[in-house]
Amino acid sequence: MADSAIPRRGFLKGAGLAGAALATNEAQAQAPAATTTVAKSPPAPEALLTLTATEAAFLSAAYDTFIPADALSPSGTDCGLVVFWDRELAGAFGYGQGLYRDGPHAQGKPEQGYQLPLTPRAYFAAGIKAANAYAKKTRGKEFDRLAPADRDAMLHEMDAGKAEFDGMNAKMFFEALYSSAMEGFFSDPIHGGNRGLASWKMVGYPGLPATYARTAEEYRGKKVDLKPRSIQDFI
C-alpha cells in the first residue's frame, strides 16, 4: 500500500484549523504555492507528550467520526480531543494511578470489571495497534486512511461486538475509546479538550461559577442563556 508508507505528519495544526491545514498540505503537494487557499501561514503543529504519530492519527480519525464538524461544533480534533487524551495518557492516570495492578491476572466475568495488567497508556497502544490491524484485514487500510463512511462502519462493528481483534476485546476497547472522546469533548477546557467551550455551548451548560443561591427560583423552569465559563476564567 503506497499511501500507508506516507508518514503521518502535520495532522494537528492547531485548534480550529486542522482541516484547513491538511487541505493546504495536499494543495501544496499538487500545485504551486501561489494557489494555496490559506493566506496566513498555518499554526505550528502541537507537540505531543506520549502519543506516536500513528496513534494520534488513529485517535483523530475516531474522534472526528464521533464528533464531526457541523453547525453544532467543530470536529473532535479541532476541539482538542487528541491533545486532551495525549495529556491524560502521559500523566498519572495514563501510567496507572488509581489502578490496582497486582497479579495474578485472570479474565473473570464482565461483572468483575477491568482485569488487564495494562495501564491506560499501554492499553491504548495495544488497542490502537489491534484496531489498525483489523482495519487493514477487513478494509485494506489502517483506520485513519479509511474513508469517513468506512471509519463509521468499523466503529459500529466494534460497538456492536461484531469486530474480532487479535488478542483484544474490541468492544471493551471501543468503550474506552468512546469514553475518552466524551471526556475530552465535555470536560473543562483546562484539560486540553472542549476548546472554545464548544460542547458546553452546544448543550447549554453554563459551567462556572455555578452559584445559583439567588437565582435558583428566578431561573426555575426557564431557559437560561448564560455565557459558559471555564476554570481558567477564574484564576
Binding site: Q97, G98, L99, S187, D188, L208, P209, I235
Partner: peptide, 22 residues
C-alpha cells in the same frame, strides 16, 4: 477551593477525592 473543585474530570471521573485502589 473554587474554581478548582468544579472540575468534573478530575474530581468525579478520575475519583480525585477517593481512595487509590493501588
Amino acid at each position: 477551593v473554587f474554581p478548582y473543585i468544579r472540575d468534573e474530570l478530575k474530581v468525579r471521573v478520575r475519583n480525585g477525592l477517593m481512595l487509590d485502589t493501588a
